[in-house]
């Protein structure tokens, strides 16, 4: 039988890999995909806790998280497209107007 700890290990590794990607990559689209990965890792932890604790709260929370994530992806990608239209780039290193 798989213990709760193993699910938490997988979930935390996925979250940490997503975090690593957010810090490591320069492409806005890849950073955004890594953010999705982090959201999903949290979902996995919530479902595992819900299963081992014996309640429906975690499952329902994941349902809401998925809905909000879908809305967030739509808005975020629209922002990236608007940014690309204005600047012709998606590299975070070149988007530094606010710096000066």
């Amino acid at each position: 039988m798989i213990s709760l700890e193993q699910y938490i290990v997988v979930s935390s590794l996925l979250f940490a890999i997503g975090f690593f990607g957010v810090l490591f990559r320069k492409n806005t689209l890849v950073i955004y995909m890594c953010l999705e990965l982090m959201l999903n890792a949290a979902n996995l932890a919530l479902i595992a806790f819900s299963r081992y604790h014996g309640g429906m709260g975690g499952n329902l929370f994941v349902f809401f998280t998925i809905t909000v994530a879908a809305a967030e992806v739509a808005v975020g990608l629209a922002i990236i497209v608007a940014l690309f239209r204005k600047r012709q780039t998606v590299e975070v290193g070149e988007l530094n107007e606010l710096k000066n």
Binding site: L4, E5, F15, A16, F20, L23, R51, Y52
Partner: peptide, 28 residues
């Protein structure tokens, strides 16, 4: 990036070791 990764992993493992969730059976 590697330092960030390491800090996250260390934090999570420290918490999961402290709380002791090892031998919990599924009780759905």
């Amino acid at each position: 990036s590697l330092i960030g990764f390491g800090i996250l992993i260390t934090g999570v493992f420290a918490i999961s070791a402290a709380v002791s969730i090892k031998n919990k059976a599924p009780t759905m």
